[in-house]
Design a protein around this nucleic acid. Structure first.
Lengths: 112, 112
DNA sequence: TTATAACTTGAAGATTTCTTCAAGTTATAA
DNA sequence: TTATAACTTGAAGAAATCTTCAAGTTATAA
C-alpha cells in the first residue's frame, strides 16, 4: 500500500511535465490569481486549463478557493519556486544553445 | 520555429517523470557507474534500463563512455542534484499537508 | 425567474509513453 | 574461431496522458 519514494518523486516531476502546468505555476509565483487571469496569459481553452488545474490540485501543488463567481488559485507551498529555479539552471547547463533558448532563459531568470 | 521556453522546461521535467530514471540519476550522484552496477540496484530488465538511459541521454542529463566491455554513465551536470533535492523538499511539504488533512478528515468522521 | 459569466466535469478519440521481445553490437575469454 | 558477457536498438502491443466536446455547477445580474 505504501508508494515507494522514488515513485512519488517521479509522479511529482511528471506533474510538472506539461507546458500549461508549468506556466500556471510560474504565474502563481507572483501571488494568487483567478482562473480568468490565467486564461488571459495562457493560450488554451477554458476546459483544458481546468483539466490542467485539476492535475495540479490532485498533486497538491496548488489550492483553490471560490471568491464570488470566480475561483482563486494559489501555490500550496513556495518551495515550488525552488523547483522551477532548479529546472532553469539545468536547462542552462544542458541546453547547447538550440535556437536561442539559452538567451530566453537568461532573460527569464532575471525577470523575477 | 523556436521551441518556447516553457515547453523546454516541461520536457525536462517529463524526462524526470519515471521511477527508473529518477533512480538512475540518484545513483549517479555518487559518481560514474557502469550499467551493470545500475542493474544491481534497480529492479528492471536490461533492455528496459537501456531504453530509460537512452531517454536521459537524449535529454542531455547523462553521458556515456565505453570502458572495455562495459559502459560508464555520468551526470552531465551536477545541477541535477539540486533539482532532485528541490523535489524532495516539495514532496516533504506536500505530503505533510496531505497528512494533516488526513488527520483532520478522520477526526471529522468520528465527530458525527 | 431567466440569463449569463466563470468554471468544472466525464467521456471519448488521438497521441505519447512504456514494457517487452527478438535481434544486433562490441569487447574479451576460451 | 567460437562463445559469452555487457549493452543497445527497433518494433509492437499495452497503458497512460491529452485535447476537445457536451453538459453541469455556482454566483450574480437583469
Amino acid at each position: 500500500m505504501s508508494v515507494p519514494l522514488y515513485q512519488a518523486k517521479a509522479e511529482l516531476f511528471r506533474t510538472l511535465g506539461h507546458p500549461v502546468r508549468i506556466r500556471v505555476l510560474e504565474l502563481l509565483q507572483d501571488g494568487p490569481k483567478p482562473v480568468s487571469a490565467l486564461l488571459l496569459e495562457i493560450d488554451v481553452e477554458a476546459s483544458n486549463l481546468s483539466q490542467q488545474l485539476a492535475v495540479l490540485r490532485r498533486a497538491g501543488l496548488v489550492e483553490s478557493t471560490r471568491d464570488g463567481a470566480s475561483v482563486m488559485y494559489t501555490l500550496s507551498t513556495p518551495d515550488v519556486a525552488d523547483l522551477l529555479a532548479a529546472g532553469r539552471r539545468i536547462l542552462g547547463s544542458v541546453l547547447a544553445d538550440r535556437d536561442g533558448l539559452l538567451v530566453q532563459l537568461q532573460a527569464d531568470g532575471r525577470g523575477r
